[in-house]
Amino acid sequence: MIELRDVGVTFPGAARPSLDGVNLSIAAGETVALAGPSGSGKTSLLRLLNALLLPTTGSVSVDGMDTRDDASLWEIRRRVGLVFQNPDDQIVSTTVERELAFGMENLGLDRDEMRSRVETLLPMLGLEQLRDRPPHRLSGGEKQRVAVAAVLAMRPRHLLLDEPTSLLDARGRADLWALLAELRSREERTVIHVTQFPEEIAYADRAVVLVEGRVVFDAPPRELFAAGSGADGWGLRPPPAMGLAGALRTAGRPLPEDILTMDELIEALAGGTQ
């Protein structure tokens, strides 16, 4: 359970708070998409959850532990894994394999366990061929997969992902979401991900939208893209399938009103044919 109560964050010298009066309660195992314009406080919110950032006002707790309590810091960081937006911010090792082991070494895992987790994760993230390569010589998308694998290796109870697919190609994005879905079905794990992609918001149980440091929306994704939700005013575009369905309706092709995903649109247009 992750709880934010009346949380405010103001950076020194800033004219306005980066987060303001944020109340959120996220149950273990929930998948939450965090969206909102640049500068709305999404990354600050993630950093609060593993005590990289402490609230200026209010409180943040993880499984009952207050992030301001120094004595809980180790345990909080053990439970909350954060994948940074830019993989270069977190990669420290000289080979991909060692990068995956780095966090586990700090957790004091024994060698066999580390080896077994590395051997499981490398193929899951398509990194087998790259295991001996220096991460800093990999492409942006490859580094991003390494960064995700290194955090998954620590098996955090709560997984935070800051735009984990921003450098991935379409297949890389689809593969990562499939992997997260699989992990979710196997063990209880909270996933909180920041994203700009409407189709990735649609993947979550719950969409939370931040605008200028405040929570302006907190409900299932389908409601976010319903007419009149305000999503457009917050700079959030509906999933492309909605726009295409609208264009087709305008051109006189009969289609249901509630189409959200491309799969639904394809079914509606070609349903009944194989």
Binding site: G243, L244, T250
Partner: peptide
């Protein structure tokens, strides 16, 4: 209907929002 449109989002903004 959908190809050759200059930008998808024109369709979106005219349609739903």
């Amino acid at each position: 209907v959908v190809l050759g449109r200059p930008a998808l989002r024109d369709g979106v903004s005219n349609d739903r929002f």
